Computed example of a mutant assay.
Amino acid sequence: MQKTMILSILHILLLLFPNAAKASIGIGIGVGIGIGTGNGGVGANTPLPSGSNLNNAYTALQAWKSSITDDPLKILDTWIGSNVCSYKGIFCDTSETPFVAGIDLNHANLQGTLVKELSLLSDITLLHLNSNKFSGTVPDTFKDFTFLQELDLSNNQLSGSFPTVTLDMPSLVYLDLRFNNFKGSLPEELFNKKLDAIFLNNNQFSGEIPQSFGNSPASVINLANNKLSGNIPASFGFMSSKLKEILFLNNQLTGCIPQGVGIFTEMQVLDVSFNSLVGHLPDTISCLQDIEVLNLGHNKLSGDISDVICSLRSLLNLTVAYNFFSGFSQECSRLFNIGFDFTDNCIPGRNMQRPSPECSVIPDVNLNCLRIPTPKPLVCGTLASRASNFKYTNIHSSSP
């Protein structure tokens, strides 16, 4: 209970500082308050009660300080003495038994590594290290962060395979690894965790998206600018209907857009651009009544763009450029003034389209995409229950 209260207080502090930023589309800005002085109203000369928590914190932070090779903003000049709660970027709870509750060193431009001794800070609930120059790997000892709820390691130079130690943090809800040099496959367990936000964009992850993808309860997932291949898992249509943003852009994905996309009635951003997706658009896209940005550009999609898609009530930007679409309805014309890019398709009578020879051979036009049966006419409110029943039936029919 106390750890939850501390995190709530830190979140209030986040709102009071101008460097606080919401997790946003494809941008490497983490949630944080920038570089601050330790909280709790404790000054540099204020004595603190002795205790193992602060002794461990002193050991951890001094070990980390020794590993940092460049500190252009002179942050670490304040990391002197045993009163760790006076260090810049360190936030303490000083009631009863004092402990370090959070670390926020966003935009400190520190260069160094993450040392194993940091795990001695076992009570922290928030670790924000956005926009530094930390290199190396994430220590396995980070599994001791049993109370950590937010981990932001974005905009660094970290490398190695996916840091599976993050999957051993039982309280984690926000994971931000974007803009690093991580590579290799994504673990199945990642999407089984109770994470609300998953930011993995701008790394070098490869291989197929795990079939466990549909188990994720996250509201925001960003997989953009990696080397992921294969199909978007069919389980995509079984995810939490609370999903608001999903970005697959600039990978090597193939196959179709799953029909189950229609269950995401609260989705605001869907970006599958710069892949090799094929086939016609599923009619269930018409159920995305909260969608604001729909980017399908730079794929191999074909068919017509129907009026039910262009009439989506919240749509602000529709990009279908560099595909093989052969037409769009009059309703789509209303989007010209707010954002509708249909260049380099195969639409007769329109400017800036593909040359005719390219349109004579449409990629995988006969591909039979797996579709969840939907009612005719389409009733969007029934999709979630149908998808749920479809998933339940398939799981139990495959049981021994």
Rank of each mutant, 00 (worst) to 15 (best):
E150W: 11
D140N: 12
D144Q: 14
V165C: 07
D140G: 09
L148V: 05
T141Y: 03
S135M: 12
L153A: 04
T164K: 15
S135A: 14
T164G: 05
E150F: 11
E150C: 02
F147S: 09
T141Q: 11
D140E: 11
D144G: 06
L153W: 03
G160F: 07
N155T: 10
P163I: 13
F145Y: 10
K133M: 06
S161P: 00
G136C: 04
F145S: 03
K133Y: 12
E150M: 12
N155F: 10
S159T: 15
F134D: 00
F142P: 01
Q149K: 15
N132W: 01
Q149H: 13
G136S: 06
L158D: 01
P163S: 12
L151G: 01
K143A: 15
G160Y: 06
T164P: 01
Q149L: 04
S159P: 00
N155Q: 12
L158A: 02
L158C: 01
D144F: 10
D140L: 12
T164M: 11
Q157I: 12
S159H: 08
S135Q: 15
F145Q: 03
F147Q: 14
F142K: 10
T164D: 12
S161N: 14
T141R: 06
F147N: 14
G136L: 07
E150G: 05
P139F: 10
N155P: 00
S161L: 14
